[in-house]
Amino acid sequence: MNTSTTTMNPAAALVQAQGVSLHYGKKAALRDVSFTIPKGRVVGLLGHNGAGKTTLMKALVGLLAVEGELQVMGVSPRQDRAQLLTQLSYIPDVAVLPRWARVSELITLMAQLQPKFSAERARELLRRTSVGLDDKVKSLSKGMVAQTHLALIAAIDARLMILDEPTLGLDVLSRKNFYEMLIDEWCDGERSVLISTHQVEEVEALLSDVIMLDEGKVVLSISLEDIDQRFVALNHDAAVADAMAAAHPLLRYRDQGRTTSLFDGAPPESLTGLGQRVRPSLVDLFVALTRNPALNNKTSASA
């Protein structure tokens, strides 16, 4: 399997990582990770549980020290964390809001803690939701809490937003409302978002770029515009399956009742006329380029 990485254009980069590694004891959580995030991008960070997504995000906000070169908006996240946090917003996967507080009290608290926070902007964003300023957090649904959290974070005049599974546990409608608010009210062509999620199908249309992690390594870093140029998927009849298999595709899967063979790069010319080219989805690429730890464990157990 060819897992070579295509890096993004480093021009006007908000994040630059080169050879970043991190170990928990003898376990490597990140292994020689390199990628770039330019301004004005919405980047999906994909990986199985344990692939290193949360570790990477914590490193980007200065919570973890790493080996290698890591710069976020021109500074070291670990050494210059106070300066970094004036330009960065972060919602971790364990983020909670105090249940006893009213929404208006949270806005007042944020205004006292974050110099670049706009209370009026937060109230403006909340008017798009069904959350009231007098509502207590404990009275809100999970979806309303997520929207409140996003409104508070999006009201900070930051250049980069990092979201770690922000819609975990929400229903489909709540997730849709969250992402609509994020794209409509925060993304402006200058600021960037890095978002980790397992709901790949739901966010694919929102993303401009994707970074895939597998066992702590970057197996793909690419813009969605470049996916069609690099990856070729041919939808074909069963009669030519053996010929396709002989060319060693990354993945073969069923699509619309026929088999699709996915190649990294152009397949042999002799095959191009044997199938219809289709666009591979992020899910297809994710399955092709990463391993499923659960399946690996089952295989090891049965070996």
Rank of each mutant, 00 (worst) to 15 (best):
T3C: 04
N49E: 02
A246T: 09
T197Y: 07
A101N: 00
E225K: 15
A151E: 05
T55Y: 10
V172G: 00
R123S: 07
L250N: 14
L113W: 12
E105M: 11
G143T: 01
A111M: 04
E204M: 09
V219H: 04
F178P: 04
L220H: 01
A233Q: 01
V210C: 01
T197N: 11
L262G: 04
D184W: 05
L97A: 15
Q199I: 14
K298V: 14
G169P: 08
H149W: 05
L173P: 14
E202S: 04
K116T: 07
A247M: 12
E225T: 14
I91S: 04
A245S: 12
M57S: 07
L45H: 01
A247W: 07
D164P: 10
L160M: 02
L150P: 05
V103A: 06
A101V: 11
G52H: 00
A59L: 07
T5G: 00
W100N: 11
P268F: 07
L106H: 03
K176P: 05
R277Q: 08
K138W: 05
G50R: 03
H198I: 00
L60F: 00
F178I: 09
D209H: 02
G257V: 00
L140W: 07
K53M: 03
V43E: 12
R254Y: 05
G62I: 11
R291E: 10
D237W: 06
L56R: 13
E190C: 06
H23N: 13
V287W: 03
L262M: 05
I37N: 11
R81W: 06
L88H: 06
V131R: 11
L22E: 12
F117G: 04
A303K: 13
R191E: 08
F286Y: 08
V278E: 13
L30M: 06
L289W: 05
E201V: 09
S130A: 13
S208P: 02
N235Q: 14
A151S: 14
G132M: 08
S76Q: 09
E225N: 15
A294V: 15
L97Q: 09
L220F: 12
S34Y: 00
